[in-house]
Every structure is written in structure tokens, then in C-alpha cells.
Design a protein around this nucleic acid. Structure first.
Length: 658
RNA sequence: GCCGCGUUAGCUCAGAUGGUAGAGCAACCGCCUUGUAAGCGGUAGGUCGUCCGUUCGAUUCGGACACGCGGCACCA
């Protein structure tokens, strides 16, 4: 006999080998019908699996959130069966569950096209309608390999080989069709339901390695019911509406063109936004950092010293004179990062321990030859501006500097409304420089800082460790923020570096008169200003807070009788420092409201004959259908106050409370 | 870089078994003086991504390239 503990705490005894299905049937007919799996000690297992040991036990019904993984996983199996029945000879590989859905990778000489998707989907619905049971079998390793070899499923043979010796080779059958799979599964294909959809076809490397052959991947999404599926499709559509590339065009912020792949043409409005962002960062740096600017084009010997010329060359732009005649034997390169430049500045003139920590910041424009397939709007470009800084300090100062950077990063994100941050510590990778002692020490320090961060910001952040993900020259913190619709963006980074200062022979004179190599901390907050701008566009869906909005206010007329008044209002707004535009076109107010709303102007001030006479304004906020009205001076004062950037507001508050 | 798809007016998109193209919005010009998300009329606008090939003839078919899109790999 075995004892199972139910969610309500009740403990019951059953003969060993009883299945979840049996237990559900004993409890009630309806439960037996709804049950799709059980959990044993929290782990989801097949309904038919014989239970052999004491455990906490729970029945998982199809509506259970935990069932969604099974639905998606089974949908992947059904997809694979459908594809093989339509195109025999197609090899199956893997088909895992992913966020919001599933995929399956196929090896086939002919590629799939999007036109194939409805055909496959129809076949899947047939298979699901047949409602055949999923049954598990455990095969011998050699038998499995023999069967898959005979079937021509060479990838499956490789997968069998990859299963650790101590694990069973499990086969799940759904009628005739079967697949190597670790499970668990629903009781039958019918339980997959109809709330699924094949989304797209794509290429993907076998085992995620670009040296391997490329397979064809079919992505699908699957949900408990149609309502969830519809909601998901709706969410995708909403996300598409806030795509920064689309808003960039609609709001006239920037464009790309083929002569400059991966580099941005900023239009006046986009550049205003960008500059507002830079101005904000600059203010945040004023207290602790010294801003510098290092050359864009430098001799490649510098990159040889830094090591980039060896391992990063493929990603660098070479710069030469364009004439036929070689004017200079030397090879120059566009900088792909700012660190070597900052080390040169550090090295210029003797540094004392009294100069440390020395924090050099630069809004450095870097160019990297990113693979063509990686380019993506503002998010991944070949030329971009980093809010970069390098802190030169002693080992003793390292922890405090990391914490200081952390505070700066988190408070910056908070100012943009990002309040869910993930901080991850990446530790030593396999390929690295420096002794184990140095790494031990550095990681120890970083661990302690991470603890401190947790204690200080526990409610706002989640933390984690990424083993082996550190830079080759030192461990790092990575800061990932979540935007308004839950997507994650890795932006900030703090990396300690024991390598570069030494390579360049940078040193400071310590209190004892000895030359010492400083520790260098690389750090960025936004990462790439271009990308951060893109993230903000999507985060706010173009509805920027007043301080960031490229055009903050449009003042417009109802009749031309108010023209003079409105021109005066705009002059006053500009005088007060607001980015205000005037619209005295001879158009209906309906049209003007529509146009400025579509342009996502936060505040629309409207004046007709009445307002002009009374020196008032009608105020319409973006996203609101109503208007308020106010006296001219008061309206301006309120807008001026609202347009104060958050950092300045905090400061004013702090000094007021002192 | 790899796999697949795409590129037609400023934008969104239609179109022809191969005979040099069309709509809506925007633009421009008029009329309308307007009260909070499209007033009315008219005009103009295109080397159908680039190059090469097939063809009497190519925007349409084929190829290469460029750029883009969706993934994969990459993001030091």
C-alpha cells in the first residue's frame, strides 16, 4: 500500500501501482472526465502512470493552469504526426513547449511555406477529432535506435544517444504514430482541443548550433479555450501597434534606408526625444562622473593591444582613405567600444590613489558590424550611442562602486516607470583570463553586492545567477527591465575587468609609492540610447510623459478670429520652455483634434472666440474625450510643472523637505 | 551569417496567362470660419527595389544582388 496526501491535507491509502485515472474515477465520474494528469510531490505525471510511492497527490484537470503545458506539448506531437502524414519522409526532431505555445523542428528537403499551415492545421484537427489515447512505452536503447534507424529518423537516433544512461527511453504513442518523448502527456489527442493555431514557419539550426544543418521550424500557439486564444491574438495585435518601427514612421521620429543599413536617420521629433534622454542621463551623472569624448577613428594598434583585433575583428569597420593611392600605411578602425579610449585618458598623466575612484563617462558612438540577420529597428543597429562609463578604482573600492552603479541604474529605470527589474550575476566562463584566485575574489565581492542589492531593493527586483555567462575578463551584473506589456529587455550592465588596464599598462601610484594596476568597471545604464529609445517608444506606446514628448503642446484654433491669441499663447509656452507648436490652419476642429491625437501630442490647447476674449484655453489631453478649461497663466504654469523631468522633481522635493 | 517570405505613389494596399498600372488616406489648389477624432470639390503624383538574362515586348518569368520582415545563430 502507498499513502497519498491530498491538497486538503487528507491522507489516503491505495494499492501500489494504482493510477491517477483510477483514483479520479473513484472520486467522481465528472472528475475522471476532466482529469488530464496528476502531480506527485508537485511533479506533473501521466494520468495512467502507476503510482508506486507515497507522495503528495493532486489531480490536474484540463482547466488547470498546469495543464497548458500538456496541451501545448501534445499539440506539438499532433503537429508532427500531421506533417508526417501529409509529407511522408519528413524527419521529426524535437518539439518543445515555449512561452505561449510550442514548435516542432522538421528535416525536409522541401521547405514549408505559410500556405502549408492551414493544410497542416486541418490535418491536426482530424487527428484531434479521432481522440486517440497517448500511451507510454519504455523501450530498450538499442531497440529504439534500431527502429528509428529503420524509419530513417536519423535525428531521433541522435536524440536517443543523448539520453543519459540512467534514464528510460520513453516512447509515446498516439494511435499508429509515436515519438520519442520524456512526457508527460494528456490522456488522448482529443484533450488538445481546438484552441490552437499555427503561427509561422522559420529556419532553426539542429541543436541550436550554426554549424549544424538548418531545420524547418513550425511555430504554433495553443490555449485552454477559444477565448484565451482570441485574447492572445488580440495581445499580439496590440503589441504590433506599439512596435517602435511602426510608431517611428507614424510619429515621424526616424527612418532607415538601404544605403545605411542598421544606422538611424533621426528626424527632428525623434532626435528631440533622444536628446531629452541624453540630457536626463547627463544630469544623473553630474555628481559623480566626469564626461569625456574619445576619438571615433583610431589606429588598429590600439585594438591589437586591447585584444579586439584578434577576436572581434569580424565585427569591426575598417577605415581607410578612399583615394587610389594609399595615403597612410596604418589601418584605422571605427571604435566598436569605448573602453580603450577611456584607458588612454586614464593613462594620460600620472594617477594617484587619491584620484580613485575615477569615473569617466561618455555618450560614445560605437559601430559594430552586426550580422545582417540581427538588425532590428532601433533595437539592434550597427551604429549606436552607449551611455558608457568606466570606473577606475582599487579592489577595495569595487564593491561600493558596484553598489553605487546599481543604485543609479535602478533609480533611472524607476524614473521611466520600469519597476520590475531582474538583476543577474554572471560568473566565470570557460574561456577566460586571470587566475582562479582573482576570479574567486571578484565573484565573492559580486555575490556580497548582490546580497546587499536584494536587501535594499527586495520588493522591486528579482535576482539570479547565470553560471558561466560572465565576460572573459570578469564577472558582471546584468539588469533586465520589464516593459508595459511584460517583455524583458536587458539594458544595464556592470562588468568588473581585471584584464584591460593591465594590457594597456595603466597604473596608479598607491599610498606606499608603488605602481598598482587599477580595477576597471565597465557600466552602462540604458545600454544603447537608440535601443532604449525604442524600448521607451514601445513601453509608452508613443504616449510619452510630458517631459519626454517631442511635441509637448499643440495650440490650435476653432476660428481664425482666435489666431492672434493663439500665436501669443504659443510664444508664451515657448518662453516658459515648453515644446509647443501652433496650428492655425483653416480646418475644422474635428480634423485638428484627430490629427494631433494620431500624432500622440500629449496636450492639445484649443481656443475659439470665447477663449480669446476671456484669455482662457480649452485643454484636451491625449487619450481623453473630455476637455477642461483654465486661465491662460494657470494652464501654462501647470504644464511647466508637469514637464519637469523626474530627476529634477526628486531634487526639488528633497531640498524642500530639508 | 543561415532558412523562409517580401519590395507597386509619402503611407496602407489592390492588380494584370507577359502588351509600361489602380484605390483610400496624405500632398497641392480652390470653396467652407468651423466648438473637440476625417467638411466639400478639383489637381498632381509611379524607371512597379537594382542589375543581368529569357522574350518581338518584362513591373509580371528566371537568376544575382541590395534592403526589409519572421525565426535561428550572434549580441564580446
Amino acid at each position: 500500500m502507498i499513502a497519498l496526501t491530498f491538497p486538503d491535507g487528507a491522507k489516503r491509502e491505495y494499492p501500489a501501482g494504482i493510477s491517477g485515472a483510477d483514483i479520479a474515477a473513484q472520486i467522481s465520474k465528472s472528475l475522471a472526465k476532466k482529469a488530464v494528469a496528476v502531480t506527485l510531490n508537485g511533479e506533473v505525471v501521466d494520468l495512467a502512470e502507476p503510482i508506486k510511492h507515497d507522495a503528495t497527490f493532486e489531480i490536474v484537470t484540463r482547466d488547470d493552469p498546469r495543464a497548458i503545458t500538456l496541451i501545448r506539448h501534445d499539440a506539438a506531437h499532433v503537429l508532427a504526426e500531421a506533417v508526417q502524414s501529409i509529407w511522408p519522409g519528413t524527419q521529426v526532431t524535437i518539439g518543445p513547449v515555449i512561452e505561449n505555445g510550442f514548435y516542432y523542428d522538421f528535416a525536409r528537403n522541401e521547405p514549408f511555406t505559410t500556405d502549408d499551415l492551414p493544410v497542416i492545421e486541418a490535418k491536426m484537427r482530424e487527428i484531434i477529432a479521432k481522440d486517440r489515447p497517448f500511451t507510454k512505452e519504455v523501450w530498450g536503447r538499442d531497440e529504439a535506435k534500431r527502429v528509428f534507424t529503420e524509419m530513417g529518423e536519423t535525428y531521433k537516433v541522435q536524440l536517443v544517444d543523448a539520453i543519459p544512461e540512467d534514464q528510460d527511453v520513453k516512447i509515446y504513442k498516439q494511435g499508429e504514430w509515436f515519438d520519442l518523448c520524456r512526457g508527460p502527456h494528456l490522456p488522448s489527442t482529443g484533450k488538445v482541443g481546438t484552441a490552437f493555431k499555427l503561427m509561422k514557419v522559420a529556419g532553426a539550426y539542429w541543436r541550436g548550433d550554426s554549424n549544424n544543418p538548418m531545420l524547418t521550424r513550425i511555430y504554433g500557439t495553443a490555449w485552454h479555450d477559444q477565448k484565451e486564444l482570441d485574447e492572445y491574438i488580440h495581445r499580439l495585435e496590440e503589441a504590433e501597434k506599439r512596435d517602435h518601427r511602426r510608431l517611428g514612421r507614424e510619429m515621424d521620429l526616424f527612418h532607415f534606408q538601404e544605403e545605411a543599413p542598421g544606422t538611424v536617420f533621426w528626424h527632428p521629433k525623434g532626435w528631440t526625444l533622444f536628446q531629452e534622454l541624453v540630457a536626463y542621463m547627463r544630469r544623473r551623472l553630474r555628481a559623480d562622473y566626469k564626461e569625456v569624448n574619445a576619438p571615433q577613428v583610431m589606429d588598429s594598434v590600439l585594438w591589437e593591444t586591447s585584444g579586439h583585433w584578434g577576436w572581434y575583428k569580424e565585427n569591426m569597420f575598417k577605415v581607410q582613405s578612399a583615394g587610389d593611392e594609399v595615403r597612410d600605411e596604418r589601418v584605422f578602425a571605427l571604435k566598436p567600444m569605448n573602453c580603450p579610449g577611456h584607458v588612454q585618458i586614464f593613462k594620460h598623466g600620472l594617477k594617484s590613489y587619491r584620484d580613485l575612484p575615477l569615473r569617466l563617462a561618455e555618450f560614445g558612438v560605437v559601430h559594430r558590424y552586426e550580422p545582417s540577420g540581427a538588425l532590428h529597428g532601433l533595437m539592434r543597429v550597427r551604429g549606436f550611442t552607449q551611455d558608457d562609463a568606466h570606473v577606475f578604482c582599487t579592489e577595495e573600492q569595487m564593491a561600493e562602486e558596484c553598489m553605487k552603479i546599481n543604485d543609479l541604474i535602478l533609480s533611472t529605470y524607476a524614473d521611466f516607470g520600469f519597476d520590475k527589474i531582474i538583476v543577474k550575476l554572471s560568473t566565470r566562463p570557460e574561456k577566460r583570463v586571470g587566475t582562479d584566485e582573482v576570479w574567486d575574489h571578484a565573484e565573492d565581492v559580486m555575490q556580497r553586492v548582490l546580497k546587499q542589492i536584494e536587501e535594499k531593493y527586495g520588493d522591486r527586483i528579482t535576482t539570479g545567477i547565470l553560471p558561466g555567462e560572465g565576460a572573459f575578463y570578469g564577472p558582471k551584473f546584468e539588469y533586465t527591465l520589464k516593459d508595459a506589456i511584460g517583455r524583458e529587455w536587458q539594458c544595464g550592465t556592470t562588468q568588473v575587468d581585471f584584464n584591460l588596464p593591465e594590457r594597456f599598462g595603466a597604473f596608479y601610484v598607491d599610498a606606499d609609492g608603488q605602481k598598482k594596476t587599477p580595477v576597471m568597471i565597465h557600466r552602462a545604464i540604458c545600454g544603447s540610447m537608440e535601443r532604449f529609445t525604442g524600448i521607451l517608444i514601445e513601453h509608452f506606446a508613443g504616449h510619452f510623459p510630458l517631459w519626454l514628448a517631442p511635441t509637448q503642446v499643440v495650440v490650435t484654433t476653432i476660428t481664425s478670429e482666435a489666431d492672434a491669441y493663439v500665436l501669443d499663447v504659443v510664444a508664451k509656452l515657448r518662453e516658459a520652455g515648453l515644446r509647443a507648436e501652433v496650428d492655425i490652419r483653416n480646418e475644422k476642429i474635428n480634423l485638428k483634434v484627430r490629427e494631433h491625437s494620431l500624432a500622440k501630442v500629449p496636450v492639445l490647447l484649443v481656443a475659439g472666440k470665447k477663449e480669446a476674449a476671456e484669455q482662457t484655453l480649452s485643454i484636451r489631453r491625449l487619450g481623453s474625450k473630455d476637455q477642461t478649461s483654465g486661465a491662460l497663466d494657470e494652464v501654462i504654469a501647470a504644464l511647466v510643472d508637469e514637464a519637469i523631468p523626474p530627476d529634477i522633481k526628486h531634487k526639488a522635493k528633497a531640498s524642500a523637505s530639508n
